[in-house]
Simulated scan of single mutants.
Amino acid sequence: METLLPFALLCFTSFFTLTNPLGTMPVFLTMTNGLSDQERRAIVKRATIISFITLMIFTFSGQFLFKFFGISTNGFRIAGGFIIFKIGYDMLQARYSNAKLKEEEVKTYADDISITPLAIPMLCGPGAIANGIMLMDDANTYTLKGILIGIIAIVYFITFLILRASTRLVKMLGETGNNVMMRLMGLILMVIAVECFVSGIRPILTDILKQALS
């Protein structure tokens, strides 16, 4: 029980900040401008389901990919730490997603935005994928793996609810409130990224020191 709660909290905070539904709201509203609430709900539903399935595929196939490409877990943790740190830094600066569409493109691709760019890469980007693979590697028991899967499902369900109510939430939070939330989540994400980087580089440095001393 002592390890379950910290692991669950780590999973929730990292995935929620990487998914960043609060920061995605203004972009989502811009992309769906002119669409009815029913059409928006359908897009959100498809996007969250696609994001969850995509993340699950990468999370479970991570170890296979490591073996297939000959990638070390520690090397992936270092690279993943850099990716997550960059995302956290952008959020700390209150920068929104780079995914932007022109007004005429919104109407043309209204049916497709649930897959790209909303599901991939906004709700399920490289940061979330890297985080999923690393946490699955840490989950050395079936209980921890179950917690990881459950937390990911909960995060995407919350994301669905937030984006579904995005019109009301944007008015309630306002630009200042949204920026404050993004900065706080960005700071948390940067701390998690540093932990990933340290956990990856420590074994490598230990091996180098052992070889130097032997």
Score class of each variant (00 low, 15 high):
20 N>T: 09
21 P>S: 09
21 P>W: 08
21 P>H: 03
22 L>K: 02
22 L>N: 09
22 L>S: 04
23 G>D: 02
23 G>R: 02
23 G>Y: 12
23 G>N: 03
24 T>M: 14
24 T>H: 10
25 M>R: 01
25 M>Q: 01
25 M>H: 00
26 P>W: 02
26 P>V: 12
26 P>R: 12
27 V>T: 15
27 V>E: 11
27 V>R: 12
28 F>M: 14
28 F>C: 01
28 F>T: 03
28 F>G: 00
29 L>Q: 13
29 L>W: 03
29 L>V: 11
29 L>I: 14
30 T>G: 12
30 T>C: 06
30 T>Y: 12
30 T>S: 13
30 T>F: 07
31 M>W: 15
31 M>S: 01
31 M>E: 09
31 M>K: 03
31 M>I: 06
32 T>A: 12
32 T>S: 15
32 T>F: 13
32 T>P: 10
32 T>K: 12
33 N>H: 15
33 N>S: 15
33 N>I: 01
33 N>V: 07
33 N>Q: 15
34 G>F: 00
34 G>H: 09
34 G>E: 09
34 G>Q: 03
34 G>A: 06
35 L>A: 10
35 L>C: 11
35 L>I: 01
35 L>E: 13
35 L>V: 00
36 S>R: 07
37 D>C: 05
37 D>W: 02
37 D>Y: 06
38 Q>I: 08
38 Q>N: 09
38 Q>W: 04
39 E>C: 01
39 E>D: 11
39 E>S: 07
39 E>F: 00
40 R>Y: 05
40 R>C: 03
40 R>F: 06
40 R>A: 05
41 R>G: 05
41 R>F: 04
41 R>A: 06
41 R>S: 07
42 A>R: 13
42 A>G: 07
42 A>T: 11
42 A>C: 02
42 A>W: 01
43 I>N: 06
43 I>K: 10
43 I>D: 00
43 I>L: 11
43 I>Y: 04
43 I>M: 10
43 I>R: 01
44 V>S: 02
44 V>R: 02
44 V>C: 05
45 K>S: 06
45 K>W: 10
45 K>T: 10
45 K>L: 10
45 K>G: 04
46 R>Q: 14
46 R>G: 13
46 R>K: 14
46 R>Y: 02
46 R>C: 06
46 R>H: 12
47 A>N: 04
47 A>D: 07
48 T>C: 11
48 T>F: 06
48 T>V: 15
49 I>T: 13
50 I>K: 05
51 S>K: 03
51 S>A: 15
51 S>R: 07
51 S>D: 00
51 S>W: 01
51 S>E: 08
52 F>N: 05
52 F>S: 04
52 F>L: 15
